[in-house]
Design a protein around this nucleic acid. Structure first.
Lengths: 260, 260
DNA sequence: CAGTGGTCTAGACCACCAA
DNA sequence: TGGTGGTCTAGACCACTGC
């Protein structure tokens, strides 16, 4: 990274294999990309501090303000967390504060968080990926995936029936015991045990009627309306790493969303 | 706005009724508040340009960078839109680009937007606010509200059955003809005809079974699962201005959400 | 007290747009 | 060509944390 102004130069020397970026890219975006690479490569682990803004500025030969703007964007994407007076830290799903970031189901009363759920793992095994799962996870049909089925209960009431599919390669050795016994969010387990950090996700939500099996698992009548939440979760670089289909009871909870 | 540094001063003179802000507030936040006031007061109408950063900097006796950071936050909240080389504009629901910002229902195929719907207004009249509606809109039970019931269809298929409640005071004279005949999003009509800009909203989503009347309106079987979307939409200053309960068919569409 | 992130400034230059 | 937003820098000072 040169200290030169962001002009069209940059493809000068120092990096022969670079295809001469055609579109103009601000310096701070390039810095952001470099920090992102270090994040992906695991140079700093979740929960750890990254170097100070001054250090990074020196490392990349750039002013502190430029590093700052890069980190601002990373913080806006929840990849890092700033803490005044302490430093900037790699975000983790294991934090006390933002736990269950991706679970938007909240009790109808008590606008506050849903608290830890009781987990009951019904099934956990390696299977060959069905076509739909393979497509979502960008695998080949028949590739090995880990499938987990579980029920989450709140206050003893079974509320979520979930199927989870994970790429077999990245999640070798995942057991039902792990899925049932760990502390905190499941994504914290994935970080700690498999080094996979879920960074963002897309959800498709529908209303469906419970079939007999689903109804039994959730202790509702067959045909009862359930919220179907299909989630595709991504790591860095928009690589999909988890497909999840949840069926939510919404008789005492609701899915909360903010629009702006 | 003084040019003095953001120290504890500010409660000096010039505003005797001010309760001496205890917590430290950065200058750019104060500038943001002032711009917000002008936005609320209608000093610049939706779609118009606000003054340039240099002009605002001169007006508030602050550097351009400080104004910039204030506008950055307003842009992040979708209250204004920046356009390089042209200026900064007051956001509007009538824009071509971000139309239907608050409608998250998309066809199962065609990841792109849902296109304009056919509107069919079933009812539009003034009523006394039921307790639940009054509470949500921060009115007194029995206050006048406008209630609208309508069906939105896509490609001839009735897909959304909606009840909308609006404060009677702000929406005097709203007619079924207006609700049915206008161009673009309904929130654009509200901006243009009533000067009410919806800025953000909260939604509570559940799965419910269609009753006989709802089923008839949406051309589904009684008991069919529907997505219930209860939206409370706010203007500036977190003032609630619309309560809306929609029932969505999700047999060919889904509610799409992004998590990060 | 030193180190970190957070704010503010002033000035230079770049990219985009319209007249 | 002039105006607008966008980027980058350098330096000063403030607020918060922990030793």
């Amino acid at each position: 990274m040169a200290a030169s102004p962001p002009s069209s130069a940059d493809s000068a020397a120092a990096d022969p294999a670079l295809p001469a970026t055609p579109a103009f890219s601000p310096l701070y975006q390039q810095i952001k990309g470099l920090i992102l690479q270090s994040l992906e490569a695991g140079e700093w682990k979740p929960g750890e501090a990254i170097p100070s803004e001054m250090d990074l500025a020196a490392r990349f030969r750039v002013s502190q303000g430029t590093v700052r703007k890069a980190i601002d964007e990373l913080a806006a994407e929840n990849l890092v967390v700033r803490r005044q007076g302490k430093g900037t830290f790699v975000a983790t799903h294991a934090e006390q504060h933002v736990r269950y970031r991706f679970l938007k189901l909240v009790p109808d009363n008590a606008d506050r968080d849903v608290g830890p759920a009781e987990r009951s793992v019904l099934d956990c095994r390696r299977v060959r990926a069905p076509a739909e799962v393979a497509r979502a996870l960008q695998l080949r049909t028949g590739d090995s995936v880990v499938q987990v089925r579980r029920v989450l209960s709140f206050g003893g009431v079974p509320t979520i029936l979930e199927d989870i599919w994970l790429p077999g390669n990245a999640f070798k050795g995942l057991t039902a015991e792990q899925m049932a016994g760990h502390q905190g969010p499941t994504y914290a387990l994935f970080e700690l045990e498999f080094g996979v950090r879920m960074v963002r996700a897309e959800e498709k939500i529908r209303a469906v009627a419970a079939d007999a099996q689903q109804a039994a698992a959730l202790d509702v009548a067959a045909g009862a309306p359930l919220l179907s939440v299909e989630r595709l979760a991504y790591t860095y670089n928009d690589v999909p790493m988890e497909l999840r289909r949840g069926l939510y009871r919404t008789d005492a909870h609701h899915y909360r969303n903010e629009l702006s």
